Amino acid sequence: MNLKTRPEILRYTAFTTSPAGGNPAGVVLDASALEDAAMLATAAEVGYSETAFVTAADHEARRFGLRFFSPLAEVAFCGHATVATAVALADRIGPGPLVFDTPVGEIALDTSAETGGTVTATLTSVPTSSRPADQEELRASLAALRWSPEDLDTALPPHVAFGGNEHLVLAVASRERLAALDYDFDALAEVMRRHAWTTLQLVWRETQDLFHARNPFPIGGVVEDPATGAAAAALGGYLRTLGALPPSGAFSIRQGEDLGRPSLLRVEASAADPRVRVSGQAVAIAGA
């Protein structure tokens, strides 16, 4: 890549109001001239779990083409990089509705400026779905996590849920089990490659409308994501399938606390609509 013509790489962190929290993402607002290899090399250089690339732009219509790359491969959809890109665009063209054309389909967003100038972005996912995990999927995953079936919350059965990507959802019975995550990186990566899962959505339900989550991401070359918007959408679809949504349909996910990068994701789901709304704020990482 010619350094003189190389596009600017922005760095934002999503699902937080502090540069020290959330999940960092690279954002390239003009990637129209970049080939796949250049985008992958840029994502590897940035080193975050994902970097988003705007490959087409219609500023008048506020519609943009968007692709996502981890340091190792292209990812079909990434929620936190979507939120980061939406906020980066709102910072430049003003808040309001946006549409992203992604490999998984059209993603509609709303952006709004909060007091103090921080921008909140709300994405509406593609239709979600969820199915029970089979015994082989569960056995191999528990072995790689170094967990036992007794660690799981029997009220929330293991499922494979989709919200743009597939995620194995495992609910644990205690916050302590979630905090003590120490998995076999290579073994879990192999299980995830075999089943085409993007992350694992490991959760503990504190109350009906508050979850704590951790998301291993070894197939992306990252031990763990501190905030995962696609998995949050998948969790909304999972709870919808189980009939376990709160009466309001809204709940929050606290993630990244065990990594020292606290994140807050707000989710809205409905029994009448398979699409899920995920909201969060994002801020630029100064000097990055």
Rank of each mutant, 00 (worst) to 15 (best):
V223F: 03
G96M: 10
T207Y: 06
I219P: 07
P127S: 12
S252H: 08
A73D: 15
R175D: 14
P19L: 08
A272Y: 10
E136W: 09
F53N: 09
G229D: 03
R193I: 00
S130H: 02
A37M: 09
Q208S: 10
V126N: 11
F69C: 14
V119I: 15
L34Y: 13
L170T: 05
E35R: 15
A272E: 14
V104Y: 01
V75M: 10
R277G: 03
T85L: 11
T118C: 10
Y12M: 09
A86Q: 13
A155T: 14
T42I: 13
E50S: 06
G105L: 05
E257P: 01
V46Q: 12
V99R: 13
T51V: 14
D91C: 07
T16R: 06
A173H: 06
G65R: 10
S270P: 09
L202D: 06
L156R: 11
N165R: 01
F162W: 14
L34T: 15
G164D: 04
Q255Y: 11
G237Q: 02
S279Q: 03
T111C: 09
V169N: 01
G256V: 04
A230G: 01
H159D: 01
D91L: 12
T102D: 11
A282E: 04
E74M: 13
A171K: 03
S248A: 09
L156N: 09
T102F: 09
M39L: 14
G116S: 12
R254M: 09
A61R: 15
G26W: 12
R92I: 06
F15T: 14
A282S: 11
A38M: 11
L178R: 03
A43I: 10
L34F: 12
H80C: 13
L29A: 14
D273W: 10
P218L: 01
A144E: 04
A108G: 05
A76M: 06
A144G: 03
T199Q: 03
E224L: 06
L40E: 06
A161C: 01
A38S: 15
